[in-house]
Simulated scan of single mutants.
Amino acid sequence: MKKTLIGLAVLGTCMTNAYAQSSVTIYGIIDAGVTHVTNDNASRTTLEAGQMQVSRWGFRGQEELGGNLKAIFDLEGTLLNDTGTAGVGTGTPSTTSLFDREASVGLTGDFGTLTFGRQNILGVGSVGLADPMNLAFAATSPNVLFAAMNHSGVYGPFGANNGGTALRQNNSVKYISPYFHHVGFALMRAFGEQPGSTDKSKYEGASAFYHTGPFGASAAYARMTDITGNAMLKSYALGLRYTGEKFAIRSTYSSNELNTTQRRISVFGIGVDLPVAPALTLTGAVYDTRHTGDAHDNSQQYIAIAKYAFSKRSTGYVSIGRAVTDTVVSATQINLAQGFVSVGSDSANRFTMGIMHYF
Rank of each mutant, 00 (worst) to 15 (best):
V54M: 06
E102D: 12
D100W: 09
V54L: 08
A49R: 02
S97G: 08
A32H: 04
D100H: 08
L79Y: 06
V54E: 00
G61R: 10
D74H: 14
T78N: 09
T46E: 05
V34F: 01
V34K: 00
A42I: 03
T46A: 04
A103G: 13
L47D: 01
L69I: 13
V54R: 00
F73A: 13
V37R: 02
G61L: 11
S23M: 05
A86E: 05
D100E: 09
F73Q: 09
V24D: 05
I30R: 00
A86W: 08
G77V: 04
T46L: 00
F73H: 10
G28I: 04
L65S: 11
V88N: 01
L69S: 08
I29E: 02
D82E: 10
K70M: 15
T46Q: 05
E102H: 15
G61D: 12
N81S: 01
T90F: 04
D40L: 06
E64P: 11
G61I: 10
Y27W: 08
M52Q: 08
G33E: 00
S94K: 10
F73M: 13
T92P: 07
E48R: 07
G61C: 10
R44F: 00
R44V: 07
D40H: 05
V105L: 15
G87N: 05
T38F: 04
V24H: 04
T25F: 10
L47S: 01
F59R: 14
A49H: 04
L47W: 02
E48A: 07
T78I: 09
Q62Y: 15
G84S: 00
E102G: 11
V37D: 03
E76G: 07
S104I: 15
T45L: 01
H36C: 00
G67K: 14
S94I: 06
N41E: 05
T96L: 06
F99Y: 14
G33Y: 02
R44Q: 06
S97R: 13
N41I: 06
E48G: 06
D31E: 00
V105N: 14
G61T: 12
R101H: 05
D31R: 03
D74F: 13
I72S: 11
G66D: 11
V34N: 03
G67S: 14
A71I: 13
R56N: 09
N68L: 12
D74Y: 13
A49L: 00
S94N: 05
K70Y: 14
G58W: 12
Q53F: 10
G28R: 02
D74N: 14
L69M: 14
